[in-house]
Design a protein around this nucleic acid. Structure first.
Lengths: 216, 216
DNA sequence: CGCCTTGCTGGACGTTCATTCAATAGGCTA
DNA sequence: TAGCCTATTGAATGAACGTCCAGCAAGGCG
């Protein structure tokens, strides 16, 4: 009946299975991304998963790890390529969050699915916590540096929390209703928030926030 | 062995089962919130679910509907009680989002779980879409009104998208790592964002955004 | 050319889950 | 108090899933 899948290199096959996992979760949801469906999407049979992963959980963990690695690498790459000051780097990070290859409907959908799953699965939870603490710390460092440059009082930690949450919230809501707003609006909204932090105010120089350490 | 559950009124028993569903999802996650666990948390036996709901899916839908109803009713109540201008109402909505009874660890966790589930379940998806479109439209109306009062140019739709996403993103990240930031910081960050929209700028009165209709 | 390592297959197995339904018991009415 | 109504129970049922493993075939090496 079905053609037997051609032999493949171990690293290629792993990548195929991870990509198939992303597609399956995005299309059918986390619970209905069964081993059967994932392997069918990868064009191989059910049993092959045991040859490349310890089990389904291991495949899911590897999938999440690839997403986090890709996000981290891409934002670091873009920020480094941009050069310029801290605000330029922050703008680059925002733009990377709403453009390919990071911003992709299937990938964003999988992020949402993993967020939900990470609430109760300890391994995903730990992975997610480390990722976000590092991400927020990096953002906060840039925020503090930018505020120092411009002589503006700013709660760098709070601003980092807000920017991260804003990006994630936009990902979340866009994945649930892509017609509600465009990726361009999402990006603009984040850039405007960033600008608003560093534009001097007319009446008051100190908007009631204090400087804080940038690492929790 | 186990004591037989006392007879209860239909509306009470339904409420108990919904509350038990919230607790079970918050503690064990969506996938592991089985009928067995939910009914045990409610203090009744497995079979009883069929007497009050068409099935597990119906119970889950009812649970989500109660969350949305409670959120809508509470924000409307608080905004009405506050009185004042549109900015005061917006501040009230923000405060309600990070204080009891809406802001509760179990409830926020269930929101996250349902977001993920709503991506692929049509009934939840439609419910969620309607809720958010209405919520964003209401926020956008208040934003537009506030901007008109103060003679400030503002993309009301974009600001509503941003505020909604900011709140949801903070809920999401707080549920995944409650130690990363406090609810007070979350609330402050949202209020600061709101203030930033309406504080006149020093250099430029028009930050490059256009007025837009408040309903998509 | 033929063996042999290894990627690959899919039926079988055990587990878990939602649902069903006949039996049971609590409480209200007559 | 007797009897009926119905909320409640829990064993039975069947479906779906992840994992296992014995066998198959493709490509490389001798």
């Amino acid at each position: 009946m079905t053609a037997r899948a051609a032999r493949a290199d171990a690293v290629d096959r792993r990548r195929d299975l991870i990509a198939a996992t992303v597609r399956s979760i995005a299309e059918h949801g986390f619970a209905d991304a069964t081993v059967e469906r994932i392997c069918a999407a990868a064009g191989v049979s059910r049993g092959l998963i045991s040859h490349y992963f310890a089990g389904k959980d291991d495949l899911l963990l590897a999938t999440y790890r690839q997403l986090t690695d890709e996000l981290g690498a891409e934002t670091a790459r873009v920020a480094r390529a941009r050069g310029g000051g801290p605000v330029d780097k922050l703008r680059a990070a925002i733009e990377a969050s709403f453009r390919p290859p990071v911003f992709d409907f299937a990938k964003v959908s999988v992020w949402v699915a993993f967020w939900s799953e990470a609430r109760t699965r300890p391994d995903l939870r730990a992975l997610n916590r480390d990722l976000y603490r590092g991400y927020r710390a990096a953002i906060a460092r840039l925020m503090a540096e930018a505020a120092r440059e411009r002589g503006i009082a700013l709660d760098a930690h709070g601003a980092a929390v807000a920017l991260t949450a804003l990006i994630d919230g936009l990902w979340l809501e866009w994945s649930l209703d892509p017609d509600a707003f465009s990726p361009e609006i999402a990006e603009t909204v984040c850039l405007d928030y960033l600008d608003g932090l560093f534009v001097p105010r007319a009446e008051d120089d100190n908007p009631g926030q204090e400087d804080a350490s940038d690492v929790p």
